[in-house]
């Protein structure tokens, strides 16, 4: 079977956030994402944003709660996010120090200033809810594992 013939890649992955308006303001206003979908159905709000240079991928900003989660589950999920217990996320940047300067200016909460390591510069920040991002300087064209 040819590699990749069955599926076409990751289209959407989501984060849990404590407040969708706050998250939207952060990802669009401070990180430079663009709004992709904002649909409501009763109390439920399907909200995704997109990186301007990555049109095939949507990042969901989802709020734990009914009707998807019962109150206790929603509380647990909110606690996990606020404790920084959710999986790490990585944002690729061309110039980590420049991005750091610009984002700090906007009031992004950095957890680690840019540090050079193995010839690459990286930094770390959190979104308002507690999701942790690593920002790593990468070569312009990321190389796929399979081509190595």
């Amino acid at each position: 079977m040819t590699r990749g013939a069955m599926t076409r890649g990751v289209n959407t992955a989501g984060l849990y956030v404590r407040d969708q308006d706050e998250a939207l303001a952060f990802y669009v206003g401070k990180l430079g994402f663009i709004l992709h979908t904002d649909v409501r159905n009763g109390d439920y709000r399907w909200l995704t944003v997109q990186h301007p240079e990555q049109p095939a991928f949507q990042l969901g900003l989802f709020k734990p709660g009914p009707p998807v989660h019962d109150a206790a589950t929603a509380q647990t999920l909110n606690e996990m996010v606020a404790k920084g217990a959710m999986p790490p996320l990585v944002l690729a940047v061309d110039d980590c120090r420049a991005a750091y300067a610009r984002m700090s200016e906007c009031g992004v909460e950095f957890t680690q200033e840019p540090v050079e390591r193995y010839g690459r510069v990286d930094a770390g920040f959190r979104d308002p809810s507690g999701n942790g991002w690593k920002m790593i300087e990468t070569a312009a064209k990321p190389q796929s594992r399979s081509s190595k």
């Binding site: 404590r18 909110n78 606020a82 404790k83 920084g84 957890t111 680690q112 959190r126 809810s129 507690g130």
Partner: peptide, 17 residues
């Protein structure tokens, strides 16, 4: 509360840093 946890996380982050 998640609000308290988020603030406590800030202390943990600062020690990490």
């Amino acid at each position: 509360s998640p609000e308290l946890l988020r603030r406590l996380l800030r202390s943990k982050d600062r020690m990490d840093g």
